[in-house]
Design a protein around this nucleic acid. Structure first.
Lengths: 279, 279
DNA sequence: CCGTACCGTCCAGCATACTGAACGACCGGC
DNA sequence: GCCGGTCGTTCAGTATGCTGGACGGTACGG
């Protein structure tokens, strides 16, 4: 099975050119233990599975070792974290809570339905994501029948400016909002050599996307993989714009196939936008 | 689309006959704020989407209102919770963390591969779950092509003694462990009238399962829906036994189809047990 | 229109949870 | 086999975060 499937492992975090500061000190006024717990989970999420001990956590977070140990103990009791030997890693309860959250996003449920019935029946991998700042979070994925599979399902964060979903969502922002999010940013970290390197390049691309109606990620996230994305207005209250995308190997993305892919995307966008559609 | 799909909404939590005590007081010695935060998340997970305010949380948890407000503020800053008006609900970061956790469970990744290639190509809905105490948590699901869809994906918890996955996993426990988990339990809450009502009934069923090699949930979880489950030994260190199941409408589960379903299950179990198989 | 009841937020005093250093165990290396 | 380094755990003192009451706003019902 696995030999028939090419597993594509997307590059990991830290793709955004962090503006220097390594987070010196900030909002630790209210319930600091909770804020610290969240930061502990963040560290564990960087390399899930790898257990981390109190000492390493204390070093990376700049916090007292015993405080970390206390918090980890509480997290373990709650199931949010599990003990591996003497260290800690993300726990199963997070999957339960994450699933509970996803069940509240109507568009995710509808996406699963819709992605199995694309009008052209193209059966490529299709994903659903939401924009958050300058990153996109993937909330759902439907694997096609192609012997190519993206590793890891939902929950992954990728930079918005190098993904089809991210660019499609960014292009839907108004000028002021876009400028606000890009403030202080000049150069962009490049996941691959095809990705935009400057904000100006990105802005030109966003203009094209607005004209064209959909976004293209031409090996910007990963060599050999292309992605077509379209914006989907968020229906949930506080959420940013969403997007759907179709992912396929570049060798399969011939010019004659693009119209069908775009048709699928347009249909997905229309379907997931319809406020009358309720599960 | 939705009209072509029958959405099955499984019954919700609280199916286990709680042994009286509503959790009077317990481990709140280490980092109480973290423990409280976890309990807040638990409350929100009961009815995801429905925002809850500090007052209601304080009432249900028996904690001071202002403490709750502080913790919720910290949770919101971390993205684990999102503000809806003046209340709070589960936040997107939980989906990211949950996805990170799931990516650490090798068997989940392999399940997604394997479930698309069942030997008989039966294309029914198949799920993967792990036993935890007397409940099972569903970690992955592959929807078949049938116009029947279970609502909500992974992360759902259901009682072990009324589900095919749960019973298959329970049957793999040794006598002592089983007795320990069932200690103090006599009657079982029945999700449907077909479910076992007493521990003795359950034990008889578990014996049959051990002889037969797979478990049957004959409308015990939901009227009109049957489920076949098989145990899969956990490969991860601290985890309990796992199980896979095939779900289908009772009207489709004719006697002549059962052998094929069982063959699929056996193949799944063999595939996901093989320690050589690595993503 | 007004009263009431409830909610979410704010603030100061006190109890409590956090800190930091010391302990014992473990591992790896000169 | 000895020793330096690192780890996770423990414990008492103190600074810190939690508590409960009061405040202003809102929605509902009279």
């Amino acid at each position: 099975m696995t030999d028939r499937h090419l597993a594509i492992d997307l590059p990991s975090v830290d793709l955004i050119d962090a503006p220097a500061a390594v987070e010196p000190v900030d909002g630790e006024s209210l319930a600091p233990a909770v804020t610290r717990a969240a930061r502990i989970l963040d560290v564990m999420a960087e390399r899930p599975g790898e257990p981390v001990g109190p000492s390493e956590l204390a070093r990376r977070l700049g916090l007292p070792k015993s405080s970390i140990a206390n918090i980890c103990g509480a997290l373990a009791d709650a199931g949010l974290v599990r003990r591996i030997g003497t260290g800690f890693a993300l726990g199963r309860r997070l999957a339960e809570l994450g699933g509970a959250y996803l069940s509240t996003v109507d568009q995710v449920q509808e996406f699963y339905d819709a992605s199995r019935q694309l009008p052209t029946g193209s059966e490529e991998t299709v994903q659903f994501a939401v924009l958050d700042g300058l990153e996109v979070t993937y909330l759902a994925r439907h694997d096609g029948r192609q012997p190519v599979r993206l590793t890891s399902g939902f929950g992954r964060r990728l930079p918005a400016f190098s993904t089809a979903t991210g660019k499609a969502a960014l292009a839907s922002l108004d000028e002021a909002e876009l400028r606000r999010r890009l403030a202080g940013l000049t150069t962009l970290l490049q996941p691959t050599r095809h990705a935009h390197r400057t904000v100006d390049e990105l802005l030109v691309d966003l203009d094209e996307i607005r004209r064209r109606g959909y976004a293209i990620d031409d090996e910007e996230t990963m060599e050999g993989v292309v992605c077509y994305g379209i914006m989907i207005p968020a229906r949930q209250v506080g959420e940013g714009p969403c997007a759907a995308s179709i992912t396929l190997l570049k060798v399969r993305a011939t010019a004659e196939r693009v119209p069908a892919l775009v048709e699928d995307l347009r249909w997905l966008a229309a379907t997931l936008s319809d406020p009358l559609r309720r599960a």
